[in-house]
Simulated assay, not measured.
Amino acid sequence: MNSRTLPSYLVLFAFVAFFSCSQKAEQKAEAPESREASQTETTQKTILFFGNSLTAAYGIDPEDGFAGLTQSRIDSLGLDYKVINGGLSGETTAGGLSRLDWFLEDEPAIFILELGGNDGLRGIQISETKNNLLAIVDKVRSKYPDTKIILAGMQIPPNMGQEYSKEFSELYPAVAKEKNVTLIPFLLDRVGGIPELNLPDGIHPTEEGHKIVAETIWPFIEAEL
């Protein structure tokens, strides 16, 4: 190395050193914002709707279903809650029990259980449906004792016989009482059996029907926020 080339190396070294220090300074400046964003994500509470095609908003845009409408209302009120839609078309209480663990990786502040309708339509024994609902509640409570649980009551048409329909409607109050959880007496109140508020299948609500369901469930959710 001769004296003529030395200044060039010094300049290059100084540039690299300055650039490296600048990057570190930027990273340090960004770190508080990153930590702040991370803290915001972790402090946001979750409302989990766990159900079948009714929760999944079968036949319409999920954002127009009662779970999606609940998120819209929460956002409009500036509440720090995130709604998770755990609805699956065709789901039974047995199926829900088997897939529940996957949804319980993170703690829900509020857990809305909407299952059993497909059990009733298939004529599954009331005792089996009840045991599955009890087991779902137990599993949520054993993992997250502070989670507020809301049970959405259902009714079915008398296709399976009057006695079965009656026992089915009594199932939800019995589970709610036994496990001391909040009960929505009938999820489809003012919607079920009204043709203009349901899709052609007569089972799944239209967008207008979901708006009414969202209004039915909101007071129960609001009381737990």
Rank of each mutant, 00 (worst) to 15 (best):
G68K: 07
L113E: 07
A152V: 09
T129N: 07
I203C: 01
E30W: 05
Q71N: 12
L88Y: 01
S53R: 03
R73Q: 13
V191F: 04
E170S: 07
E63I: 15
T147R: 06
G123L: 11
D64N: 14
E107G: 04
R122W: 01
G117D: 09
V16C: 01
A223S: 14
S20Q: 08
F168E: 03
F19K: 08
T93G: 09
G202N: 08
P185M: 12
G202Q: 08
L115N: 05
M160Q: 13
A223N: 08
W218V: 10
T5W: 00
I60C: 01
L12W: 02
I110Q: 04
N198K: 10
V137L: 06
I221N: 03
R122Q: 14
A94S: 13
M154V: 05
L104M: 12
I149M: 07
S22H: 08
F103P: 00
I124E: 03
N198Y: 06
L197E: 09
E208T: 15
E41Q: 14
L199W: 00
I184Y: 00
F220V: 14
I184P: 01
A29W: 09
L12H: 03
S165Q: 12
Q162A: 14
D101A: 15
D75W: 07
L115H: 05
S72G: 02
G95M: 03
M160R: 06
L100S: 10
G51L: 06
S34F: 02
T182K: 11
L104I: 09
V175W: 03
